[in-house]
């Protein structure tokens, strides 16, 4: 169990993390999501006491990290940046870490085997590929057989086989009753591994809920409607908590109303419907919706004029034609 309470980290003028509070429970994989620079890695470094919070606290199983007598046996951490001396072999790297705790060579060989580095264990880590380096980091995290694991973008640089391996590993670790926190950019990856999500944007908490709730809350119930009298229907449906977006002359995307209610409303007004399809947003879309306003570093598309800072990738498409009440987005958007 990791309890983060009121965590704030300031680097000079820059607030990397602001009043962040969440709890990571054991027995399931918790995904830690957020756009670039949102403070995921910073939070993870604070969990293992590498960075000191400007304010707030982190407790792991009720204790501060630095108070553990055997920290590697409590928390295993794979950090974003490589944490290996490039001149040392994988085996000696792990051995040196193990020796601080009195962990024996057998365990070192075990984790080397586990992550599939046995063949290169005696080679200099500096010559490792990105994926091999990542595996070595995972071996170090597993060294003390800890009850809590934090992985900062573990799939970074792994091949498809490695990604599948990580996915299984994370799930197995959680199934054994461990606390597992994994950060990632890949929503599709999280959809397959995580059961719970902590989402942050610009260092603030945006959502802390199950994957299913997250998708539902972020997208609302979008219903795709096609009707020859779309404008009329839009005016009919618009009310507090209902958002209607036009996707073409006769196409509407309605959120905040079930397809049943729209059907009944249309029938009542005698408006014919050609299409009425409830749509569940993917985790990817849910994430984009939710973090849209907090993305700091936008990428332009090749066709956009160079140097135009307002262009954002993936934000093209329909404009809002009418909004009443809450705008789509935010955990509380669903009525």
């Amino acid at each position: 169990m990791i309890e983060v309470a009121g965590l704030t980290k300031r680097y000079g003028e820059k607030l990397a993390v602001t009043d962040l509070s969440f709890t990571v429970r054991p027995g399931l994989v918790t995904g830690f999501l957020g756009p670039n620079g949102s403070g995921k890695s910073t939070t993870m470094r604070m969990i293992v006491d590498l960075d000191t919070p400007s304010s707030g606290t982190v407790r792991i199983n009720g204790q501060r990290y630095r108070d553990f007598r055997a920290p590697l046996c409590e928390v295993g951490a794979l950090l974003e940046a490589r944490s290996v001396h490039s001149g040392r072999s994988a085996h000696n790297h792990l051995l040196a870490l193990a020796q601080t705790h009195g962990i024996g060579r057998r365990r070192v060989d075990e984790v080397v085997e586990l992550v599939g580095l046995a063949a290169v264990a005696r080679k200099r880590a500096g010559g490792f590929s990105l994926g091999m380096g990542q595996r070595l980091g995972i071996a170090a995290a597993l060294l003390g057989d800890p009850g809590t694991l934090i992985f900062d973008e573990p799939v970074n640089g792994l091949d498809p086989e490695g990604i599948r391996w990580i996915r299984t590993l994370l799930k197995d670790l959680a199934a054994q009753g461990r606390t597992v926190l994994v950060s990632s950019h890949l929503m599709s990856e999280m959809a397959l591994t995580a059961e719970h999500l902590v989402v942050i944007g610009q260092g603030r908490l945006i959502a802390d809920q199950s994957v299913a709730d997250f998708v539902a809350a972020a997208s609302g119930n979008t219903v795709h409607v096609r009707s020859p009298r779309a404008t009329e229907l839009r005016d009919l449906l618009l009310s507090t908590d209902v958002t209607v977006r036009a996707d073409g002359p006769d196409v509407l995307e309605v959120s905040g109303l079930s397809s049943d209610r729209i059907g009944i409303a249309a029938a009542g007004a005698g408006i014919p419907l050609y299409e009425l399809t409830p749509r569940q947003a993917s985790l990817e879309e849910a994430f984009m919706t939710l973090t849209r306003d907090t993305v700091e570093y936008h990428g332009g598309t090749p066709s956009s004029p160079p140097g135009d800072p307002t262009t954002t990738a993936g934000r093209s498409g329909a404009e809002l034609v009418g909004t009443a009440g809450a705008v789509v987005g935010g955990p509380g958007a669903r009525a």
């Binding site: 006491d49 590697l72 940046a81 490589r82 944490s83 040392r88 870490l97």
Partner: peptide, 14 residues
């Protein structure tokens, strides 16, 4: 320089 310090200090947080 290599980042090893992070591994070192997570093992010995004191």
């Amino acid at each position: 320089g290599t980042g090893m310090i992070r591994a070192t200090l997570t093992a010995v947080p004191h």
